[in-house]
Design a protein around this nucleic acid. Structure first.
Lengths: 212, 212
DNA sequence: TAGATTGTTAATCGATTAACAATC
DNA sequence: TAGATTGTTAATCGATTAACAATC
């Protein structure tokens, strides 16, 4: 593969937003857009949009703008949305069940294929046709099915061991919802969703207004 | 209140993490910590920790370090965790129910007091002692109970109108889980949790490894 | 006192914005 | 061709890291 200079995560985290806006334009039947028009919709600078996109090559055309469908599909490729991922959920509590019921990940190539828990009351239950299995069966399942991503919605006391095991079984990514930081070999990619951090940040913003 | 220079959101978003680590140290009975020790645990630079904290005043003592309990409580104050917030959940689907069942927000002062939905099958149901009400009753409820925060877990087609209404009824903060950007008057604070963005970012990270 | 570690200034690094030549 | 808009370089801005004097 061609050697490219390291793209910053700040740029990467903006791509899904571009992708979403382009998807909406696509649905509306819009077929071209300029960086300025998009910048106004998204409330960012046109310069940033052009800089971000040019990290990956030239997707536009001078004097014209960007073809919506093409740009949309190119961003999908950059993010890896042109591929399929096999996912399992570990921990089928409230949040695990909610995520299991989410159909919308499927259409982006994220396929839920397994559910695991320790709770005998949950084991055997099915969500969207997927049976909850005992966590003892997880090693075999992950290895046999070549699972790419594990969604971790287990209590924080359990997550470290589970994550380390999954890493040793060759998982590629962990989507971690526990309020814990995982330190694992660099082959395993980690994306944290710290809901409590997000809520605390909201509390700060609410009070910040008082100081103005 | 004293006029302070604007603190960047980058700093604010690190505070909940400091707060979490300090809470863990507190539970372990550790009573002091230096920026260097904390930096090693958290995998950040000591310099950053000191810079971050000094945005809000001097919490440490030369030659000693930081008192864990004191620093923990000071960060809580900065974030506004010394206050109480009344919250409602709008949209009691899978994710709304999961969040409603989360007990852990309560102990940080975030009190869930209302649940709203349009679905007649959900209306009348109770979660943790809170009855799901018809969304028609929301205006009166928000105004009478002076609700601070609304958790938005409604379909994306509904969220814009609901958010605008809540804003006009004096809500202070919106915790938005819909894949939509809300543009509202600046009195209303918005914190987005875009799960799909997070998952796409994980996909990128997984594939990025291939280029190394 | 000597040692340790903060608070804070200065240096570096990186990200964003502005500007404009290239070109469709 | 003239007008529009990209791609890209340069300028600015902000955030992080390093260094060290202050001080407990």
């Amino acid at each position: 593969m061609t050697e490219e200079r390291k793209i910053s995560m700040a740029v990467i985290r903006r791509l899904p937003r571009y992708y979403r806006y382009l998807g909406e334009l696509l649905e509306k039947g819009v077929d071209k857009i300029s960086s300025r028009e998009l910048s106004e919709k998204m409330n960012v600078t046109a310069s940033q949009i052009r800089q971000d996109l040019n990290n990956f090559g030239g997707f536009g055309q001078q004097g014209y703008g960007y073809n919506v469908e093409y740009l949309h599909s190119e961003i999908a490729k950059i993010l890896g949305l042109d591929q399929n991922y096999k996912m399992i959920i570990v921990g089928v509590g409230n949040l695990g069940q909610a995520l299991a019921n989410y159909g919308s990940f499927e259409k982006r190539g994220f396929h839920l294929v397994g559910l695991f828990d320790v709770n005998p009351r949950l084991i055997g239950m099915s969500i969207r046709g997927i049976e909850v299995k005992d966590i003892d069966q997880m090693e075999q399942f992950v290895k046999e099915n070549k699972i790419d991503i594990a969604i971790l919605t287990v209590p924080k006391t359990r997550v470290k061991d589970i994550a380390e095991n999954l890493a040793s079984w060759g998982i590629k990514g962990l989507w971690n919802f526990s309020p814990v930081d995982l330190f694992l070999p660099s082959e395993v990619q980690i994306e944290n969703v710290h809901l409590s951090h997000s809520l605390m940040t909201l509390a700060y913003k609410i009070n910040e207004g008082d100081n103005l």
